[in-house]
Computed example of a mutant assay.
Amino acid sequence: MSDHKDTGGPLEPEDSAAENGRTPRKVIGTPPQTGTLLAAEEEPAPQGAGDELDEASAKRAERVIASLFLLASASSVAFIAYYIGWSGRNGGMHGIDRALESNLWLGGTMAVSFLAMAIGITLWVRRLMTSKQIVQQRGDLRSDEPTRQAFTEDFLDGAEDSAITKRPLLRRTLLLAAAPLGLAPLVLLRDLGPLPEKKLRSTYWGPAVAKAKAGGKKGVRLVVDGTDKPLRASDFASPGGMITVLPEGIHHADHALNEIAKAVTILINVPADKFKPAKGRENWHVGGIVAYSKICTHVGCPAALYEQTTHHILCPCHQSTFDATDAAKVIFGPAARSLPQLPITTDDEGYLIATGDYPEPVGPSFWERG
Rank of each mutant, 00 (worst) to 15 (best):
1 M>E: 09
5 K>L: 12
8 G>H: 09
10 P>T: 14
11 L>Y: 04
17 A>W: 02
18 A>P: 00
21 G>V: 06
35 G>T: 11
38 L>I: 00
40 A>S: 06
42 E>D: 13
43 E>D: 06
45 A>K: 08
50 G>A: 01
52 E>P: 00
59 K>M: 07
68 L>S: 07
68 L>R: 05
71 L>K: 00
71 L>A: 14
76 S>K: 00
77 V>W: 07
82 Y>K: 08
82 Y>F: 15
84 I>R: 08
84 I>T: 13
88 G>K: 05
88 G>T: 05
90 N>M: 09
91 G>F: 01
97 D>A: 15
101 E>M: 09
104 L>R: 11
106 L>E: 06
118 A>S: 14
120 G>W: 09
120 G>N: 08
125 V>N: 12
131 S>M: 04
133 Q>F: 04
133 Q>P: 15
134 I>Y: 11
134 I>V: 15
142 R>S: 13
152 T>S: 12
155 F>C: 05
157 D>H: 12
158 G>H: 12
163 A>Y: 00
168 P>A: 02
170 L>M: 12
174 L>I: 11
181 L>V: 11
184 A>Y: 08
187 V>S: 09
187 V>N: 06
188 L>I: 13
188 L>T: 12
189 L>P: 03
195 L>G: 06
197 E>K: 14
202 S>W: 09
202 S>M: 10
206 G>S: 14
210 A>H: 02
216 G>I: 10
220 V>Q: 01
220 V>S: 04
221 R>F: 01
225 D>R: 13
232 R>K: 15
233 A>W: 00
240 G>T: 11
244 T>N: 12
246 L>S: 08
247 P>M: 00
252 H>D: 11
255 H>L: 11
256 A>R: 13
256 A>C: 04
261 A>R: 14
268 I>N: 02
269 N>R: 15
272 A>P: 04
275 F>C: 00
277 P>R: 05
281 R>W: 11
282 E>P: 06
283 N>R: 13
284 W>C: 01
285 H>V: 03
291 A>H: 05
299 V>R: 07
301 C>F: 04
301 C>I: 07
303 A>K: 00
304 A>P: 00
311 H>C: 13
319 Q>P: 00
321 T>Y: 01
325 T>S: 13
326 D>R: 10
327 A>F: 11
328 A>L: 09
339 L>R: 08
344 I>W: 01
346 T>K: 03
352 L>H: 02
354 A>G: 10
357 D>F: 00
366 F>W: 14
370 G>Y: 02
